[in-house]
Design a protein around this nucleic acid. Sequence first.
DNA 1: AAACTATTTGGCCATTTTGCCAAGTATAAT
DNA 2: ATTATACTTGGCAAAATGGCCAAATAGTTT
Lengths: 110, 110
Amino acid sequence: MSAQRQARAATRATVIKAMAHPSRLLCLEALMAGERCVADLTNLVGADISTVSKHLALLRSVGLVTVEKRGLQVFYQIACPCLGTFFECMDDLASSARSSKRRAAARCQC
Amino acid sequence: MSAQRQARAATRATVIKAMAHPSRLLCLEALMAGERCVADLTNLVGADISTVSKHLALLRSVGLVTVEKRGLQVFYQIACPCLGTFFECMDDLASSARSSKRRAAARCQC
DNA sequence: AAACTATTTGGCCATTTTGCCAAGTATAAT
DNA sequence: ATTATACTTGGCAAAATGGCCAAATAGTTT
């Protein structure tokens, strides 16, 4: 019974961990407006292209994005449109966590 | 302009990273059914109580859970009920990512 | 006040994650 | 065929995480 829960938690953690990085979130956010090639995302993130490529590979490995190669370029696209809602929710949480005294009433409304 | 995006991505990453661990997800899941004390969560997770305590402190630091001390015990409670929806979404993603050939059509519907 | 219970904190080591550079692969252009 | 372009992969050092034990803290009970 608990083994199943543990397994599910591990699976979820894999996906969530893949999102848990500023550069990867930046990519996901950009991709929500439409597909982008690696060079564009690299420019946006401001890191080495090899670094960004690895970040994207990770997102891909958990299914958060899909890939399509056209000519020399590789275009990445989000696979989970609902992320937008979730991100806003995280933003709300973050701001309430920042407020001087965090009280129970500050819970999110989503 | 981009500096603001970077900052927001960093903030989001902090919150999401806090969720990105099997034990912490297990705790969040349990807490969705109602508050729990550290001992209960420790029992559920199956790690040292000091380890679980640190996991909970992290969740608390980003505002994902709130705390209430009553007597000797400390009760943790989720601050963001919408997590349930999000987790299901992650589950869907994970299963489609697992399916033999991952195609664009396998995108989530949430 | 002493002993006990529930939880947190401090260290410390093992493991994982990041990021850059260099090298490799694939497709296109000359 | 060569050269160029767009990415990916391998390798390695630096930084961040995770987990246990021991010690400290806070609140209870005797």
